[in-house]
């Protein structure tokens, strides 16, 4: 696919041009952090940002959403339509794009979730490539998500003097065609520039996880009964922050919101979390993950083991949000490295 150049001084103009016809959401400052939010003016957009509080999954799988309405006694939901508008997620990090790729495997493969699918259809993703690792929590290098690979329509890369835009889909091509902020780039020249930039970039990204990518799945295969889980469980407050902020956590609960006249209501779904005590409790009072340690272990296994067996994919994107948000200081890097150390000593 083709490449464009964008002068650095034209970025504002480019963002404004996207707003014509699309709801553009991008990282915007919120107090001392960042969130994805609707762009009112291009000046608000933060291109150098630490991962947002919530990942962009909220646009495809909202925290709370209506699934349909019902009248009392009905056995079927009516009005199950999804309101969508053409949307662009702008300046997504490659880790978050990988997060959406993971959600696609879950929600958008047969049988697809109609609500997710409708939203995904009207969505364009414009990535912004990271040139430095975010902070001490990011493990994108080990998880191999630090470079753009797939899952985006357009990727913007800062090659020093200007930006290179890589068009990666037909939708992306249609979006950018004729945009007056952009200059046509010869494919060969742009590719050389990108390759050189990435070679330099790689020197700044180190492996913070001791086990290599290829060893991770085996490590988890051997670690189910590790005492490390007890240590993690002792710290855990079961607040559910780690799962809410995870770009690949998708567990949900459903409930009915009944109208005040009690003749009917709405069926809704809301994000749920395996870290909450109630999550794995079933009728009869049994709870098959009663201990915080087993709940934390479950979360890690959903990222490094079960997902590999089921989808042939790690569901950790290396974004570091779970560690960054944990007030009890549970660190993914420490946990995985402790498992690795213990495994070596056996």
């Amino acid at each position: 696919m083709r490449h464009y150049y964008l002068e650095k001084t034209s970025m504002g103009k480019f963002i404004e041009s996207l707003k014509e016809g699309y709801r553009v959401v991008a990282p915007i400052k919120k107090e001392n952090q960042f969130v994805f939010a609707k762009v009112e003016s291009a000046g608000e957009v933060e291109l150098e940002y630490l991962p947002t509080v919530l990942p962009p999954k909220k646009y495809l799988f909202p925290q709370k959403e209506k699934l349909g309405t019902f009248d009392m006694g009905d056995t079927k939901l009516t009005d199950t339509s999804v309101e969508v508008e053409p949307m662009i997620i702008f300046a997504a990090h490659t880790c978050d794009i990988e997060g959406l790729e993971c959600l696609d495997v879950v929600f958008n493969s047969d049988p697809a979730d109609p609500y997710y699918k409708a939203r995904k259809k009207s969505l364009l993703i414009i990535g912004f490539e990271c040139m430095v690792p975010c902070d001490e929590y990011a493990t994108c290098r080990t998880m191999d998500t630090h470079n753009p690979k797939a899952g985006y329509d357009v990727m913007i890369t800062d090659v020093g003097s200007k930006y290179v835009l890589h068009v990666n889909s037909k939708e992306g091509k249609d979006l950018l065609e004729g945009n007056s902020a952009l200059l046509d780039a010869g494919n060969g020249e742009a590719k050389t520039l990108l390759a050189k930039t990435r070679e330099e970039k790689l020197k700044r990204f180190d492996n913070k996880l001791k086990p290599e990518f290829s060893r991770l799945a085996r490590l988890f295969g051997d670690s189910y009964t590790s005492p490390v889980w007890d240590e993690v469980g002792e710290k855990c407050l079961s607040c559910g922050n780690c799962t809410a902020v995870c770009p690949t956590c998708y567990c949900l609960d459903m409930y009915d919101k009944v109208k005040l006249d009690t003749t009917g209501g709405e069926r809704k779904r809301v994000w749920d979390s395996c870290q909450l005590e109630e999550f794995a409790s079933v009728a009869g009072g049994e709870n098959f993950r009663e201990e915080r340690s087993s709940r934390q272990r479950h979360r890690y296994y959903r990222k490094f083991d079960y997902s590999v067996k089921k989808y042939h994919k790690f569901f950790c994107t290396g974004c570091g949000r779970c560690s960054r948000t944990c007030m009890a200081g549970i660190s993914l890097i420490e946990t995985v490295n402790s498992l690795d150390e213990e495994n070596e000593n056996v």
Binding site: N241, A244, S273, M327
Partner: peptide, 20 residues
């Protein structure tokens, strides 16, 4: 609910007070 206030707080994407 028998889960923590954090659950609702995070869904609203509030900046955590501990972060401030």
């Amino acid at each position: 609910p028998d889960y923590a206030v954090c659950v609702e707080c995070k869904l609203k994407e509030n900046v955590c007070l501990f972060e401030k």
